[in-house]
Design a binder for these strands. Structure first.
Ligand SMILES: [Mn+2]
Ligand SMILES: [Mn+2]
Ligand SMILES: [Zn+2]
Ligand SMILES: [Zn+2]
Lengths: 145, 145
DNA sequence: GTCTTAAATGCAAATAGTTTGCATTTGCAT
DNA sequence: ATGCAAATGCAAACTATTTGCATTTAAGAC
């Protein structure tokens, strides 16, 4: 291929071949702020590579997630969303109406984890925290009926 | 019907007709300790009422969840699971090896929620918190290799 | 009790996000 | 360049869940 993209070394270091589809998806993920569905990423990708296939997007994202390059999240019935694995520990605040996601940098759980370890004799190695609510716009829309 | 079940008043108070399917599912949910999939509940229900239909189970659980009688949870690809809505707000500590679940009564997030509401202008109505780790026994087993 | 009516159910079919089988192409090590 | 495993495109399958519709049923009025 003429230009395998900017992520060849990165991909090879993670034990993956550098393909134009993977490079493209990495570049899209790197630009994007909020987690996106596979289909949204596919629609973005198809602008640069009209032959890319939705199955490939799913397979690439699955592989990325397996390698901890991306993270996949899902809620009840909704589609899963994918984003680059966060460099720093963070949590999500999710609007239950429009599905907007705000990232929360501060984690309030360090002391709590320690106290749980003491009281339960577990070793706590991870946690999952998501807040659910309504964003300002959706609050207004809901108030109007 | 001869015997509408034990939950007639309870159901009527929640604005629902008392049907044998709903009574049966409530009695199953009340007995069961861990959250179950709709299909598991259906398989349990069919023992008492061989004519109950899986669609009905889904519809009943949807209605129960809408009334906050049950809670529905799901992880990634897995099927949703349903359980009676916990009487007290609580969280889970899950052993990643043996899948044991310890319920945590104390919630450390009240102040955090308020500060998030102030900084994001969301209204926060709910949260999901799970801790992951290893129980004492599994720690020992892992240490032994 | 009977009557009335909206809600609930059974059944079959549809939905939709995601996965998979398979033929073909591609990247990478030699 | 060559060979081969891995990745891709395409279409079809999968599967948890939902939905349309005809029929039954519960609750309330009489
Ligand atoms: Mn945290
Ligand atoms: Mn809490
Ligand atoms: Zn919103
Ligand atoms: Zn354990």
């Amino acid at each position: 291929m003429d230009d395998c993209g900017n992520y060849k070394n990165y991909l090879n270091e993670h034990g993956m071949k550098s393909t134009k589809q993977r490079n493209l998806l990495l570049s899209i993920l790197a630009k994007i702020q909020t987690p996106q569905t596979a289909e949204k990423l596919y629609l973005q990708a198809i602008k640069s590579d009209s032959s890319i296939n939705l199955s490939t997007v799913y397979r690439v994202l699955e592989k990325f997630t397996e390698k901890n390059i991306t993270i996949r999240t899902s809620f009840l019935d909704d589609k899963s969303v994918y984003s680059l694995y966060p460099k720093t520990h963070q949590h999500q605040l999710i609007c239950m109406r429009c599905k907007k996601i705000v990232l929360l940098e501060h984690c309030p759980l360090e002391d709590f984890e320690k106290s749980v370890e003491e009281s339960t004799h577990f070793s706590v190695v991870n946690h999952r925290l998501e807040l659910y609510g309504y964003c300002r716009q959706c609050q207004k829309i809901i108030a109007m009926g």
